[in-house]
């Protein structure tokens, strides 16, 4: 059994607002093994992006990690000083942002931005750094990388820019990459190209990847394990095919049913009724209760996370039975 690259334990992230503390991430736990892809899925506002930024220790004010541990190779990131964190970021943990149009600095050339990243972490000459940057661009499938290095971000398409960002992430061979909806802003053909490229690049590397998305189909093709988040908590966790085939949490079921398919052609699309809850005003009990088709009186109390075997956990009083045997679900 190898040690996990990243181990998140009871992570709580809060935003102190005038209306009170907003708990955006609530007791989240998960591990990422070397070479493993973890998909974090959820609607907007479910806390998946904040989880990513909490790991990076890059929360915007007034966001703050209140409690919990974030262990990168056994080192608690929450206890590190600014300098140590700076040295880890970009080198041991890299991040890919959502909108490639906004991530690269518009007034600096690609080579400037790539080389400065290398020089921030490695003691190499400028020429060596340039060579490394060029190789990295070639690796992500950018044609004539030497020329591309000399261009500005606005001279590239969105897909190209996201490839550059992926190249920057992979360049220094980090232990962990956090990708925050990296294909959401791209159109479908580019999205599949990028996904294909990611799969290819990951296959011979031993790095962990957290892929944050709201798109279950992306997760199905890329991830090994999935964490489904709702209102700041992980409501269901498990291996990807098992979880998608036999979801136990009604919310996961709802997400899967919301994907338009051939079978539903001509019929009204299924959707989850209601909206994501206001995190400032959650009340007691299961936060999904008002939207849940399986809600009962017991849901007025908050469900515990329970293991259901095969590495799966679910946080629900009334999990969908077909996915589980009866004994395990009786929590």
């Amino acid at each position: 059994m190898t040690a996990p690259v990243l181990s998140v334990r009871d992570l709580v992230t809060e935003f102190d607002t005038r209306a009170g503390a907003l708990r955006a991430v609530n007791n989240v736990c998960f591990d990422v093994m070397p070479g493993e892809v973890l998909g974090i899925v959820g609607e907007s506002g479910s806390g998946k992006t904040i989880t990513g930024f909490s790991i990076m220790q890059l929360l915007d004010k007034p966001g703050k990690v209140k409690s919990g541990e974030i262990l990168l190779n056994g080192k608690d990131l929450g206890r590190l000083g600014d300098t140590e964190l700076r040295q880890l970021r970009g080198d041991r943990i890299a991040m890919i942002f959502q909108d490639p149009m906004m991530t690269l600095n518009p007034v600096l050339r690609i080579d400037t931005q790539m080389i400065e990243t290398i020089l921030a972490h490695r003691k190499v000459s400028h020429a060596e750094a340039r060579q490394l940057a060029e190789d990295a661009l070639a690796q992500v499938g950018i044609p004539s990388p030497a020329e591309r290095l000399k261009t500005y971000p606005h001279e590239m398409s969105g897909g190209m820019r996201q490839r550059v960002v992926i190249a920057i992430a992979l360049m220094l061979e980090p232990d962990l990459i956090i990708a925050d909806e990296p294909t959401t802003a791209l159109d479908v053909t580019i999205q599949s190209q990028i996904l294909f490229e990611m799969q290819r690049l990951l296959s011979n590397r031993n790095m962990g990847l957290i892929w944050i998305t709201h798109d279950l189909t992306v997760v199905a093709g890329l991830a090994h394990k999935v964490a489904v988040m709702y209102a700041g908590r992980i409501v269901e966790f498990g291996p990807v095919s098992d979880l998608l085939d036999r979801p136990a949490h009604p919310y996961t079921r709802g997400l899967i049913d919301s994907i338009p398919s051939n079978a539903s052609h001509g019929k009204r699309l299924t959707q989850i009724p209601g909206m994501t809850p206001n995190l400032l005003n959650l009340g007691k009990g299961c936060p999904f209760r008002p939207r849940c088709p399986r809600a009962s009186d017991i849901c007025a109390s908050d469900p515990e996370t329970s293991s259901t075997g095969d590495g799966r956990t679910v946080r629900c009083h009334n999990p969908i039975e077909e996915g589980l045997d009866d004994t395990a679900s009786a929590t």
Partner: peptide
């Protein structure tokens, strides 16, 4: 933010 994420 991305520049920070790159450890500059």
């Amino acid at each position: 933010k991305y520049a920070r994420a790159r450890g500059l």
